[in-house]
Design a protein around this nucleic acid. Sequence first.
DNA 1: TCTTCAATGTTTACAGTGTCAACTATGTAA
DNA 2: TTACATAGTTGACACTGTAAACATTGAAGA
Lengths: 203, 203
Amino acid sequence: MSESNETKRPYHHGSLKKVIVDTALSMLAENNGWHFTLREVARRAEVSHAAPYKHFPDKNSLLAELALIGFDQLRAELIRALKSEGMTPIDRFFIAGKTYINFGLTNPSLYKLMFSAEASGGSSQVHLDERAMSALGVLLEVLESGQNQKVFKRGALNDQTAACWAQVHGLTMLSIDGLLYEEKVGGNAIDGALKTLMEGLKA
Amino acid sequence: MSESNETKRPYHHGSLKKVIVDTALSMLAENNGWHFTLREVARRAEVSHAAPYKHFPDKNSLLAELALIGFDQLRAELIRALKSEGMTPIDRFFIAGKTYINFGLTNPSLYKLMFSAEASGGSSQVHLDERAMSALGVLLEVLESGQNQKVFKRGALNDQTAACWAQVHGLTMLSIDGLLYEEKVGGNAIDGALKTLMEGLKA
DNA sequence: TCTTCAATGTTTACAGTGTCAACTATGTAA
DNA sequence: TTACATAGTTGACACTGTAAACATTGAAGA
């Protein structure tokens, strides 16, 4: 009965890859102050420090996988937030924007990782991935249908997409970094900024 | 005549701090793929790997100093770009925006560092620094004078500031990361996005 | 002028990291 | 049963940030 407390591991562990990803995600979630080591992941997964290398060629590959999961989650949240019927395009714009930003504020480390070079770097090319860019597709759809309903200015869909994406990305980043100081930008910067941009979208 | 080739160093070097900062800045400038080690800085400065510690308490302090220099440079470029007379507020908005973004694209590593946690972290609190936030002041002035000339919507200066800052920051970041894919956002995303926002500013 | 001292360097050491190579255990196909 | 590919461990390497101990030196006071 040496150590057979509870389920003694089969010692081919079964699902190390999933455990590693989950462990890493939860480290990211609790993360204050950005340090993330592969060895710490292995430690928490109670596995040797080199074990992750059987599932990921290197650290960046794991980070890239996490980033892709982040994009999946972001997209899912956007879709969920927008699925209810009967919203005006303007409602949908604000819902989408605030959902996006809120995702970043709720998962700051993950969000930063999603746009970090370390997640890209390798061969995985995160940002070219369908999964990464399809979150953007949701925003695009909001704009497009808003145009079709003649609530938003016609044409220049590209420009509007760029403006909206940059706006929410910028607000998210600045907010994560704690840069939207009240004395510089007021107490309600995010809503205010979205409203300002909206003025530029309306037909 | 052992090694007295040229000026033999006084061996209290005189200006190591400056040399370290300059070396680090140039490493940042040539930077491909974000790795920055103190020891490499020391190596290039031809000094022992611990020497920088006589001038900076730790790595982050050096990074913080570099970041502040970056903010200084950004502010200087904005001021220079805006100093000529006879521009309309709309001109000034586009000049400021494009100068800001161009600064980021010209110095991507430095720009990212300016907004990175690693530059902040320590006691230096970069982002609370006058020098950091005064670049934002330049943008604010553009908006304010545009309002006074009744070219921009009156009121909500805070909201406009937030919107503009988020917009240029977002565009800069996305562009540095190479995310403004033509098929997603057109070939002229930056101009288009700025134009879209401008529509929201005009009176 | 000589001495002392603080500032500024260097050396050495340590713990921690990413990664690789060599080794081991194991479930599966021949 | 045997062979092998898969998935794990161990141990090593080069590298990092950082601290402590030591060395050099220019300047201030005797």
